[in-house]
Nucleic acid binder design. Sequence first.
DNA 1: CTGTTAGCGCATTCAA
DNA 2: TTGAATGCGCTAACAG
Lengths: 343, 343
Amino acid sequence: MTKYPEGKEITIYDIARALHVSTATVSRALKNNPAIPQKTRNKILEKARELGYQPNTFASGLRNNRTNTIGVIVPRLNSMFMSDVIAGIEKVINASGYNLIISQSFESAEKEKDGAETLFRNRVAGLLVSLSYATQSFDHFLPFIKKGIPLIFFDRVEDLEGCPAIVIDNFKAAYEITSHLISRGCRELIHITGNLSRNVYKDRLAGFEKALSDHDLPFGAEKVFVTDLSAEAGKEIANRFIEKQVKADGVFTANDTSAVSFMLELKKHGIRIPEDVSIAGFNNDFISEVVDPALTTIDYRGFDMGQITARTLIQLIDRSRDQEITKSIILRHELLIRNSSLH
Amino acid sequence: MTKYPEGKEITIYDIARALHVSTATVSRALKNNPAIPQKTRNKILEKARELGYQPNTFASGLRNNRTNTIGVIVPRLNSMFMSDVIAGIEKVINASGYNLIISQSFESAEKEKDGAETLFRNRVAGLLVSLSYATQSFDHFLPFIKKGIPLIFFDRVEDLEGCPAIVIDNFKAAYEITSHLISRGCRELIHITGNLSRNVYKDRLAGFEKALSDHDLPFGAEKVFVTDLSAEAGKEIANRFIEKQVKADGVFTANDTSAVSFMLELKKHGIRIPEDVSIAGFNNDFISEVVDPALTTIDYRGFDMGQITARTLIQLIDRSRDQEITKSIILRHELLIRNSSLH
DNA sequence: CTGTTAGCGCATTCAA
DNA sequence: TTGAATGCGCTAACAG
């Protein structure tokens, strides 16, 4: 009946038998239950080590109906910013004794939904989400909310009942950087952005618009380019600019990747940066420092955001019957003025 | 006794009861066991959907002593290359119905060991590893090997019994890029590298050395700089160069990050690239294209490596009683000649 | 402070 | 083709 294909595992029964105690005692000792006196506990811990005992996470998960696993869903892992965030999350999660399961949506609502379902089925203790471009419905998060599983959004967030959001003030950052461009003499500004369903892009656009209006500069839909913010997108808008379909003396782009590719394409065609066009990006990726001239941008370090997001989640998971609900957090950002905008 | 704190879950018992069949039948139907006729199976599947049944992964894990979870341990998530690899891994893993648990070693042998233990305890179905700088002992992988859990190394690999390695030909790539520098007229070459315990750096150094010797150029320990390959490291070596403690007309660096920071520091001090010094990096990160002049480098796309690594692992997990053992794979690389080396 | 006991949900064996 | 029964390893209730 019982099958031991490759050497059986050590269980608390083995420890109990070796020490002539009950499994209940062993279980308690292993969990640092104060009912067990130090001496007994030590004996048990030592025997466990001696036998090479490894707790069976399935058995305890089955019993408790909870894991020490935390799920995260992000649009993609391979962007400088996001990999920084994930690195920060992983660091905190792991240091707190949890595991991290990762899922990518590839900017697809469908894949995001699939990821959420899988993570739910795997009984994650908490969920961290940065939304895909395409997400419109949030129903796939309801099971978590209903079941009381803490859910936190970061960066690309949505205001759902009881779900804190960890963000920066995108409106303010965009306002500042746009105002900077204006203060350097730009009068015809355009904005390259991403899907406006997402707060990050919507808010940055709003900040851009407000800065224009506060400085009595005209604004209109023709000044906004909605793209996927890829390097290709930057290049494409640059080409429209080169062909005079687009006029501008200042460009604010919602990420560094597209800003840099935009800049490089212009340079390739002999347009001088920042003399002919000033450019500003967003994120302070390493490329923004490396490109020539260095890109004015918003510093917005992902690693910290990841750590704070993860800490907030763990706090939420660990709250027994605590006081108030953890609220959303707005992180600091910083305007980095560099050569690309010294027009 | 039974506790349903937040609305009970649907189990196969609920389905069985609703349909007046046994749980055994339900279990079989859900697993597409051919003993169950289509008609019955369909009825069960539909009822499962209707009730919103979600299989309990703990229970089946406990029963089968295996998961559909795959573990990965990497030095860090936030490097362009590594995040690309992880993205590729995640894509394949998820598409194949597995989950991905991630752990970072932060280049520490200790943390790598902790990660391996955690993943082992979590009964991962397979493990993917890229080794930390500091790893010297490989004992923490033995439990996997003993238990027959497939283990694959990628990029930073080690030759362990039965563990395939997914790599590029680092020796050859280094030989090619060094030879290129020599062909462009460099006569005094230095090499900036990482920890030589790791194959990637050891092999690149060997390729560098071989290219020098094949071209009758002198080689010695003073031409090799072992660093952590960070941006700071590149800058520091650049400063030694500026202060004439280091002489060179050609520099081959084992990654793009340090190559770029090396280059930028030299440029800042008025040294002309490539007229005064030719520079070559490794990886073809986006920064290597963006920097001015663009960096000669080795193209070595991580996303594909990740996908291939993951596919190989899944194949290994799924092999029933298959033919031969999957072997190591050497992926293609490409020398990208760009302006930084047109000396 | 400690032991007995039951059961979490599932997959499998055995018998029908 | 189906069902009854069992146990995976752990934890918690309850009773000493």
